[in-house]
Amino acid sequence: MLQAAAFYIFSAIAVLSALMVVFAKNPVRAVLFLILAFFSAAGLFVLLGAEFLAMILVIVYVGAVAVLFLFVVMMLDIDFAELKAGFAENAVLGGAVAVVLAGILIATGFVWVDAQSVEANLQAPTPENMSNVAALGALIYDRYVLFFQLAGLVLLVAMIGAIVLTLRHRDGVKRQDMHAQVTRKRKDSVEIVDVEPGEGIG
């Protein structure tokens, strides 16, 4: 009973805030509503028993992505009124696409038929008496350690690519050279001049 109530509350907030993301006039408010939508989706995940996904959603999407959005919205001088000027013209077409997409999703929900063999073949069923996070950790770092390492290599390639394609070595930039600094001798930089009284160093 309590669960059902929580589900309806979270879903209602998620849907309403998602709508507000689209309709809000002020882009900063739109991003804030987006964060609210993320939070309620995280609540739905908890209800489904996927605590880890809920945590990730909050940490990654709210903590990183949405904050980045906020930065972008605040830093860039974008005239959102101008961007939205074409909204009315395309509203019919956009609405039609939205209706069709929603129709497809709903139709899929009604005709969804599981393959009979799914139960028997299930690759990684959630183990009994094990928390969500522990189960995922046991899978990712043990059974799927190969995938974990491969994903690391993919990220390494992305890093190499970013450097190769954008880094330019400029000439004439003064860089710190530790070796030169440390091995500098006194005689290279200090000169003792015997100054005659009254003459100065000219």
Binding site: A115, S117, N121
Partner: peptide
């Protein structure tokens, strides 16, 4: 989604 596994054998 329809086979319950990503392994080719499954």
């Amino acid at each position: 989604g329809f086979s319950g596994t990503t392994e080719f054998a499954g």
